[in-house]
Design a protein around this nucleic acid. Structure first.
Lengths: 278, 278
DNA sequence: ACCATTCTGCAAGACATCTTGCAATCAAAA
DNA sequence: TTTTGATTGCAAGATGTCTTGCAGAATGGT
């Protein structure tokens, strides 16, 4: 039974004070979902105790239970999860491929909680306006580095993939200057030579961008811009590059759109971009 | 200053326990935004007091203030003007990133309709038993080729990434013999030199494996084994490597499991494989 | 090995929030 | 008007949550 039903059932039996409380809840459900009984009562101009009694009257064990129901109903956190869970539920099997696909889809469903569209657009513009782009990825991340190098080369940008050995890296960094952008990847831990990379870039006046898993926020020194989203649901599981790759793809698409006439609605044009991408 | 900035500023000064807390917050921000200090602490496996101290260390007056900041950042409340944009972005997930994530999740959900678990296991065994592995990927597929090369090298296999230019390719194929496996990728169209590759492999007695999108079935001459699954739902959309990458990951995991004691249940062991993979 | 320092759990208590018995108030019916 | 019953605020106490001094453990430097 939904929360609204639960309230409706009781509606005729509500007292004036309780009605004021309910009106208040309906008017600003998220505020009620986050606040305390006292706050709601004050907003409705009634006593705290009345709020407590209302919760019971509506069939909840306590005011806390009532608030939890409000959270389930009005706070965005769960809707996104369930939306994606539906997609996955059908393919519930205990095979490696099935489990993997499910985990990935789940992680993808949560991307938007961590990265907002403005960041994607901002970074796409940054890359397209860069003088030169330096891409750095060590270990598994080299795969993504290669992908970005390929894509942005096709956009006509000057792109350099940085070596992973310290000596080569140092040599390549010599040319770094203002207007350049360093795009780097880090998962689980900071890549070898990471600190030196960021510091050098900063000294040279280049912008640093980091795409990472959940560990991103912990990196020191911090990059100028960071896109961090956790990978597959279970941190103890084999972690893949699906989530960061999707972030990269979003950047690529955004960059592609930036490059063309900006007047057209973005999503309408996705389809038209195939030839440029493939 | 955003919350992430605030955390990043302090990142180098964080203690192990505090890092665990921060990781937990980053991983499930909405949970942290709604819950209590004690709940967060329990989830991170540290003492409640540490959570309280962390909030202060990050520059907040109290844990409550920290939680309020989390709410501002991660919970879409529909009232205030400042959060208007965030709400729009979330509710109508018509952003590039959101649409992309949804499409990918959908495509992943359908993988199992096209590829069955036995095929994955069979190919994993084939690769692990191969004398030498030759990996061929042209264009965007080179990204996946690189990934497979890296992973199987780490398994101790002899892996060669084949050149994409005809001359280099021809030279590298000279060593091909019985017991070798050629793993190749093809999306949209057959890669350059594909026919020659397959024919040469067949003459040399090597096994050929193809990972592809839905066009795979049309390839001529056909490979010995094929894993084909369609990519993102809309064939006219920008197509990514997410689905084939997930297939590759499944093969990698299966290969990893094959290599160790086979008596243990496969899925139970997924978690234990981290160190071998990262 | 020793010392200094930092970290972290414990537990007490401070603080916030919720619940409930009680009494005052109000409205409707006798 | 009086009576009855429901409603509501009050305030005490119950419960939940956060903070902080302290001491033992861990860490790093000498």
């Amino acid at each position: 039974m939904s929360l609204i039903d639960q309230i409706s059932d009781q509606a005729p039996a509500l007292t004036p004070s309780e009605k004021r409380l309910v009106e208040n809840v309906i008017e600003r459900p998220t505020a009620a979902a986050l606040g305390t009984a006292g706050e709601l009562a004050r907003a409705a101009g009634v006593h705290e105790a009345t709020a407590s009694r209302l919760a019971k009257k509506l069939g909840f064990d306590s005011y806390a239970a009532f608030r939890d129901a409000l959270r389930d109903e009005f706070i965005a956190t769960r809707e996104t999860a369930t939306r994606f869970e539906k997609t996955i539920a059908e393919s519930s099997s205990d095979t490696i491929l099935g489990k993997l696909a499910r985990d990935e889809a789940q992680a993808l469903g949560r991307i938007e909680e961590f990265i907002n569209p403005d960041q994607i657009a901002e970074i796409a513009v940054m890359l397209m306006n860069a003088n030169r782009i330096y891409v750095y990825g060590y270990g598994n991340a080299e795969v993504l580095a290669l992908m970005m190098v390929k894509r942005f080369r096709r956009f006509g940008k000057a792109v350099h993939q940085l070596d992973t050995d310290p000596r080569g890296l140092a040599e390549q960094m010599l040319g770094l200057g203002t207007g350049d952008v360093v795009l780097s990847f880090a998962f689980r831990r900071a890549p070898r030579g990471y600190a030196a990379l960021i510091e050098t870039a900063r000294e040279a006046g280049a912008t640093t961008i980091m795409i990472s898993g959940k560990s991103g926020a912990l990196l020191a020194p911090g990059p100028d811009h960071i896109l961090a989203a956790p990978r597959s649901g279970d941190p103890d599981a084999f972690q893949t590059l699906t989530v960061p790759m999707t972030v990269c793809n979003a950047i690529i698409i955004a960059a592609g759109l930036t490059a063309k006439e900006k007047s057209l609605k973005m999503l309408d044009r996705l389809g038209q971009l195939i030839e440029r991408f493939e």
